Each structure stands twice: as structure tokens, then as C-alpha cells.
Amino acid sequence: MTMRMAFSPCPNDTFVFDAMVHGRIPGTPPVEVDFADVDVTNGAAERGEYDLVKVSYAALPWLLDQYTLLPCGGALGRGCGPLVLTRGSDSVAGKVVAVPGDRTTAYLLFRLWSADEPPAEVVVRPFHEIMPAVAAGEIDAGLVIHEARFTYQRYGLHSAKDLGDWWESTTGLPIPLGAILARKDLASRVGITPAEAARLVRASVEAAWADPSLSREYVLAHAQEMEDDVVDQHIGLYVNEFTRDLGDDGYAAVDALLGRAAEAGLVPRVTIPRLASV
């Protein structure tokens, strides 16, 4: 049976999953991939559309009834947080702000950070549209993710706040961005358990590190016209030790993010179960 997967076309995801998708990890079922921004995959996961899917950690409270969090393959780290961009102001109070999705980790961090001085209006836009809209004066500020942290200066924009730095200085923990989930009924759907899926994902991560040249064509084919140096920076930042294994610090970061958000009334309270050792 074919395993339906969904993740973004960003270099970190294509780098991580290249070996799985192209049959270089023994035991992987045949794979069908859909590429989509995370706000799209968050909604698709809530409808149970995929067997293996990349979502925002902020969306987990609505997904854990159907899915199991895998301890590998995702995006979590330090110095990699979302940025609040403006044309010069350091404040978003009373402003119109574009965000890349209403259940993204970026937006959840933004809501925690801006609670005392909230914007007047929040609009959702695909992340690649946000910087041009801010630069053109269509909106006052934008919340950006991914490679935008390497390119926003080209639009003449100002980083009003690095929410990753804010989170790390507040908690001392890494920032949890994107999670990999497997359906709890994966065995009946494609013949492997979530724990077995985690072993395959981890093997794919390790294969990507062992010979990065093998994934290069796949990464560049989906990199949305990024320059090679931006692609390399992107992979170097978002594919790290937490991609191989969340570990105690990774799980603590997830618990802290969702715990703080629950206390603020922003998400339902949830306990994150750890998958048995893989």
C-alpha cells in the first residue's frame, strides 16, 4: 500500500525525506508526496488526510487524537525562530500584521509575545507573499519563517523582533517549529507502525547527512528559485541534532510552548506522549 506524505518544498524537508521518497531506505513503503505550506498541512492533518505529515507544533492539540508525534524529522532548534518584519517600526501595537497561518508555531509565539500590545488586525497570507506585501505598504508588518531570515534585507525591511531569540531568552529552551506526525492506525493503512516509521525517518536523516550530494537535485528542484548559498544556510540551520532526535530538551521545549499557550487560553491543554524508543 502507498504511504501518503505531505511536507513543504523547503530545503530542510526535501533534504530530510529525499532518501525515503526515492527508495533508498529499506523497508519504506511506496511513497506519494504532496508539497504544501504548513498552514495547508495543518488543516489536512486535522482531516486525517495523510499517513505521514509535517505540521506546526502549535497545531498538535487538535491532532493527537489521530496522530502520533515522531521524535525525528522535524524542525526544532536555536537561532531559527520567526521574525517580525516592518518597514522601520519596532512596535506592532494597533497595526495590521500578516502571518503564515493561524495555527502555526510562528503565530502562536507572536500571540504570546504581543499579548500586552496586540495588533489591530491579523491576516493570513502564504509566507512567500508576506515580505513583498510589507515592502509595498499593503500591510504594516509581517511574521516570516524559513529562508526569509536570510533574505528580508533585500526588501528593505527591518527585523522588529526575532521571536526565536525572545523564546530562548525567556525559557532557555530551543524553539519547536515543525513536527512530523504518523497516523496511529498506520500499520493497518501501510503495513508499518509509527515506531517503524520513525526508524525510517531517522535513517533518511542520517543518509542525507552521510552524502548530501545525493539529495541535491531533489532539493534544488523544489527550492523555489533560492540561491545555492541560501539553500545551504537553510539546511544548516533547520536540520540539526533535534532533527535526528528530539531528546529531553526537545520534548521540554514542546511542553513549554503548549503549556504556556494553554495557560494563556490560546490552545487546549494537552499532554505530549513520547513514542517508545526507536
Rank of each mutant, 00 (worst) to 15 (best):
F150H: 04
L258S: 01
L63D: 08
R244D: 15
D51I: 05
A58R: 02
L109M: 10
R199V: 13
K161I: 01
V270D: 05
T68P: 13
A135I: 01
E225R: 09
T243G: 15
T271G: 02
E206N: 14
S91N: 15
E168Q: 13
D37S: 00
G142N: 04
P9W: 02
E241T: 13
G79I: 04
G259S: 01
L200S: 13
E225Q: 12
T193P: 11
A93P: 11
D228N: 06
T171A: 13
F17I: 03
A141N: 04
L186Y: 10
P126L: 07
V40W: 06
L173T: 07
V278P: 09
P11K: 05
R183M: 12
R24V: 02
W167P: 06
R199I: 12
L63I: 06
K161S: 11
F127P: 04
F150V: 02
A179G: 11
V124G: 02
D13H: 12
P176G: 06
T104C: 09
G250I: 06
G172W: 07
S114H: 04
K184S: 13
L63S: 06
V55W: 00
A252V: 07
R78V: 03
L200P: 13
P174L: 01
W167Q: 09
G94E: 14
I235G: 11
F242D: 12
G81K: 02
I235P: 05
G88M: 15
D232T: 06
S169T: 12
T14E: 01
Y67H: 11
L246W: 06
L69W: 01
H234V: 05
D34I: 04
T86C: 10
D255Q: 12
W113M: 10
P82Y: 07
L85W: 07
G43E: 10
V38R: 03
D228T: 07
W166Q: 04
F15N: 03
A207C: 14
V124Q: 08
S204K: 15
G247Y: 05
L112C: 08
A59C: 09
G27N: 03
A6C: 14
P176H: 04
G178K: 03
N12K: 10
T86W: 01
D249E: 15
Y67L: 09
L112R: 10
P194T: 03
I25V: 13
A221M: 07
S204L: 14
L214F: 08
V201W: 13
A252Q: 14
V231C: 03
A252P: 02
A120N: 11
S277R: 11
R202C: 12
V38G: 00
A256V: 03
D140N: 12
L109Y: 05
E138K: 09
L177T: 04
T68H: 14
S114Y: 02
R189H: 14
V96C: 15
R260Q: 09
S188H: 12
P61C: 11
A135K: 00
T41E: 00
T86L: 07
D90W: 15
